[in-house]
Nucleic acid binder design. Structure first.
Length: 486
RNA sequence: GGCCCCAUCGUCUAGCCAGGUCUAGGACACGUGCCUUUCACGCACGCAACGCGGGUUCAAAUCCCGCUGGGGUCACCA
């Protein structure tokens, strides 16, 4: 059997990482079995300005490396892939259902339904709509006056519908628990449960993998599949993603949960994919790092957890660091350039010498650079002559007896060290400490803060060389002036 | 409220279906130490969980029931 999965996002202008994970599971399943992954835009409700929202989704998928075999921009045999353009399919399906007598015209008014709902609430029972047969003369009068009606599915009583869920196991529901549900609104708009079935059937989706909030919809959908005469796809409902340290559903309210946030921060798609895959799925309880190929080779729905997982930013960050270690220097340099440009630290055109300097900074930063945007916090002082002293570092390393004189001595050392490079600087500073009987820490730390303004950073000699002799001496002078004026 | 789903360290999870090898394993985070001029990396060690109560059994994290807690759904939203 060929595996065809799909992800059907609404173009809301926001790509939640929980949704991305669901999409990833779909994509992984399709790739695992050499099948197809279909992207379908669920824009029945969003009338306009979907273009930017769709672009956000497509860009996010491309960034993650989740390619779709059918959908926007690539087309496919079962298009169109925008629900707003599939009206005829829904209309035809609704007509055939009506012809088969499984749906009926509901002329009820909102007031009537509201009253019934209130009665049900008062009696503390679930509200379920049931057909109230219309006398023939009333029906023909309504039809004659073209009275608007919704199309409702007549749920057959006395049945138990069972979903053989690949994650949850068999889940069943008696049809008595279900009300007759609307499939098409009076204005002709198909509702989700109906459109979704028509689309999945027509697109020959074999596995419907979606968020668990849809589990209860599945009974209705199964009824529609059957009425339309289609084979059932396999279903898998994946648990929601919870907030860190809680079982509360992760929402936009929590903050940084949009994929774009992580893209802007400068996360690696490999790290994000690795993280999302392990959120609610595991291979063996041992392996944490997975390449995309390993994921494709080992993913299975059976090993998706049936209980919710909490988003864990710390783990994502760790994974990011692990993936960053494998990134070649050249790629790091290229990746970091746009951030430097965005902050106005370098110009639009990057010259050879500048690139060499960036490479030196990136290399000196080493593992400290966890995300691309870190270049702005950890590497800023290499790209601006403006010296910003970190107050804590100044207090800890510079507010001591004799520091200005120490710095004057170090300034002289820098002025006379030749050639001015890591190797000779290190030798010179060591000799200086020995000669003045000062502990290395008491030399190196003040010098670091005096030249970089920061208490932490790459190796000191790397910093000194990259900054250059003139810049270092100027910074030391500025620091001495600052110390002596306050 | 009815119906349905879920429940192992703070977090991600292994183990559960096929009960004993589980004094519950791995990872993140956290703590300590080593390395070290700072930080990061690395290495070593440590802290830390079967929600509660019954039952079945020689034996239960694993099977059954109840409770508690969390979640979903009951739309002419998706």
């Amino acid at each position: 059997m060929s595996v065809r999965t799909r992800f059907a996002p609404s173009p809301t202008g926001y790509l939640h990482i929980g949704g991305v994970r669901t999409a990833l599971f779909n994509w992984l399943l399709a790739r695992r079995h050499g099948g197809q992954f279909i992207l379908r835009i669920d824009d029945t409700d969003q009338a306009r300005h979907v273009e930017a929202a769709v672009k956000l989704i497509l860009d996010g998928f491309r960034w993650m490396g989740m390619d779709w075999d059918e959908g926007p921009e690539v087309g496919g045999r079962f298009g169109p892939y925008f629900q707003s353009q599939r009206g005829k399919l829904y209309h035809d399906a609704a007509r055939s259902l009506e012809a088969a007598g499984v749906v009926y015209r509901d002329y009820s008014t909102e007031e009537e339904r509201k009253a019934e709902k209130e009665r049900a609430d008062a009696a503390k029972v679930a509200y379920r709509f049931r057909e109230k047969p219309l006398p023939d003369d009333v029906r023909s009068r309504y039809e004659a006056e073209n009275r608007p009606y919704a199309l409702r599915f007549r749920v057959p009583l006395g049945r138990t519908v069972v979903v053989y869920d690949m994650i949850k196991g068999p889940v069943e529901q008696r049809t008595e628990e279900m009300g007759d549900f609307v499939i098409v609104r009076p204005d002709g708009m198909p509702l989700y449960n109906f459109a979704s079935v028509v689309d999945d059937a027509q697109m020959k989706i074999s596995h419907v993998v979606r968020a668990e909030e849809h589990l209860a919809n599945t009974y209705s959908q199964i009824l529609i599949f059957e009425a339309l005469g289609y084979d059932l796809p396999r279903f898998a409902h994946v648990p929601y993603v919870a907030e860190p340290g809680s079982k509360k559903k992760l929402s936009k309210r929590f903050g940084a949960v949009g994929l774009d946030h992580f893209i802007e921060k400068g996360y690696l798609p490999e790290a994000m994919m690795n993280y999302l895959a392990r959120l609610g799925w595991s291979l063996d309880g041992e392996q944490e790092i997975f390449t995309r190929e390993e994921l494709i080779a080992s993913f299975s729905l059976e090993r998706v957890n049936s209980s919710p997982a909490s988003h864990d930013p710390d783990k994502l960050f760790w994974l990011q660091g692990e993936w960053m270690k494998g990134e070649p220097l050249e790629e790091k340099v290229e990746a970091v350039i746009p951030y430097l440009q965005g902050a106005g630290l370098i110009g639009e055109t990057v010259h050879f010498g500048e690139k060499r300097k960036i490479a030196a900074v990136v290399e000196a930063l080493g593992d400290r650079l966890k995300t691309w945007s870190d270049i702005l916090t950890l590497g800023r002082y290499f790209f601006t002559e403006q010296l910003v002293h970190d107050p804590d570092a100044v207090k800890k390393r510079l507010r001591k007896e004799g520091v200005p004189n120490l710095l004057r001595g170090l300034d002289h050392l820098l002025a006379t060290t030749d050639p001015y490079d890591v190797h000779h600087l290190e030798k010179a500073v060591h000799a200086f400490a020995e000669e003045h009987k000062i502990k290395m820490g008491d030399v190196v730390n003040p010098l670091r803060v005096a030249t970089t303004g920061q208490g932490v950073g790459p190796g000191l000699y790397d910093c000194l060389e990259i900054l250059g002799r003139d810049s270092c001496r100027r910074r030391i002078a500025e620091t001495i002036a600052m110390l002596e004026s306050t």
